[in-house]
Design a protein around this nucleic acid. Structure first.
Lengths: 268, 268
DNA sequence: CAGTGGTCTAGACCACTGG
DNA sequence: CAGTGGTCTAGACCACTGC
């Protein structure tokens, strides 16, 4: 039964009934629960674009039928995807593909807050695109983006100001191929988080990121753009952002002025 | 049946069967799933010290019997407590109260890593207690610790060095009452994370923390302790650490030298 | 081998949303 | 009202640990 199922185990004999011959031979157990397999299949639907950002995915009962498993198993797969912020559950409405657009929780990856802790107190950020050009990847950028040194990249430089005070200077490197057609105009005209534009215009959804933070002093050019003195220490925030499958899709280096702001982090 | 149960709903009629009269009157629904109530009860056992760090809690079946609910409901409560790092599950062995002692994952709250990313490359940190004295809480410290300004606090200053290079200067404020008896000797002699000592000696377990990070320049005294120049920018890391119940139990201000290290953060 | 946590099922009912 | 996610149960079997 369920001969067409792409899954390892049979629905009539749950959970890899009787360790498979393969597993018995391999030194690595390679045991994978059913819900992990369903999760992997759902990830493919997200990655392939079958399920688009902000749209609803099939109901739990639908998916249970499609995958020939019980609702509870689908539930557990969705639970994990929701915990990773790939899906959003809304009781009574359905389960939706997460997005960087819409919602209050814009700027999900920006951890800089004004001293009073209330982002709304200073209104929306003013964004100025300083530069947007094609260039070639340095060895460092290439390594971070998992491409070859010298490959084409798009390079963006911008300044974010809060309450008219220049506060963030960012240099951004993007692989040229997925982001073909990105221009300064498009960045300037778009009203919303940059990652939302990446989703809608280029089908690239940033899923997670890692940041390395240091304290630095700005050089002359950076001082000019941020209108600071060369003796004012700044936060250097190096970010690598990843799409599905842990594929790096952006390198970003931010310089944060922390005289009236701080970088907030929660330790659990 | 189950007349002795401390829970809201009856095991024969699951999940608040028929919205309670109280809830119908109150404007706030005040609906709480069974597993949340079990979770709260388990939190009490942790908080009261009935279940001690690193020891095993009763098995899921035991708890299910004790609370007169099914194993699945207990499971969901434990799942959440494990996700919050309060419990640790070990298949085949049991569920254990998490601790800052033992295990590789020491220094869970320290996010500073050497440039090569491998904490083991530079060996264990050398710790030097510079000072440990009784004093009175400033208004800032008092607010953070939820005590009154002028209340007694313990103040600790220490320097951490990696590969003999002074790298972290920390000022720590602790409420005097729970930490009565803490001395410089005890801190110096103890071999392990400070939070592990807090657990074993004072029964205070740090559960989570929040950090505010800025870039600063050191003053003369800080320069002397870290052996740096006054023009070397440093990371200022202000931490408030909380025990159970979101009760703040420590304020800490760290100065991190980031010439050969970086503060790592994962964005999800 | 017994005991633990981990997975899976089938079915029931509840809470929430929208037409 | 139908449809969705959310909770709860009862029971079965699997994977892992240690005696």
């Amino acid at each position: 039964m369920s001969a067409m199922s792409a899954l390892t185990s049979d629905s009539a004999t749950p959970a890899n009934a009787g360790t498979s011959p393969v597993a018995a031979v391999l030194s690595a157990p390679a045991f994978s629960p059913l819900y992990q397999q369903i999760k992997a299949l759902m990830l493919q639907s997200l990655q392939s674009g079958e399920w688009k950002p902000s749209s609803a995915i099939p109901s739990e009962m639908d998916l249970a039928g499609r995958f020939k498993v019980s609702q509870g198993t689908v539930r557990k797969a969705i639970d994990e995807l929701a915990a990773e912020n790939l899906l959003v559950r809304r009781q009574g409405k359905g389960t939706f593909v997460a997005t960087h657009a819409e919602h209050q929780v814009q700027y999900r990856f920006l951890k800089l807050f004004p001293d009073d802790g209330d982002p709304s107190s200073e209104g929306p950020a003013q964004r100025r695109i300083v530069d947007c050009k094609r260039s070639r990847a340095s060895t460092e950028v290439a390594r971070a983006l998992a491409i070859r040194a010298g490959d084409a990249v798009l390079q963006v430089r911008r300044v974010l100001s809060f309450a008219t005070v220049p506060t963030i200077l960012e240099d951004i490197w993007l692989p040229a191929t997925p982001f073909k057609g990105l221009t300064a105009e498009r960045l300037t005209d778009y009203d919303g988080p940059m990652y939302a534009l990446f989703e809608t215009e280029f089908g690239v959804r940033m899923v997670r990121a890692e940041e390395k933070i240091r304290a630095v002093l700005p050089d002359a050019q950076q001082c000019a753009l941020l209108k600071t003195k060369p003796t004012t220490p700044l936060l250097s925030v190096e970010r690598i952002a990843y799409t599905y499958n842990d594929a790096p899709m952006e390198v970003r280096r931010g310089l944060y002025l922390t005289e009236r702001h701080y970088y907030r982090n929660a330790l659990n």
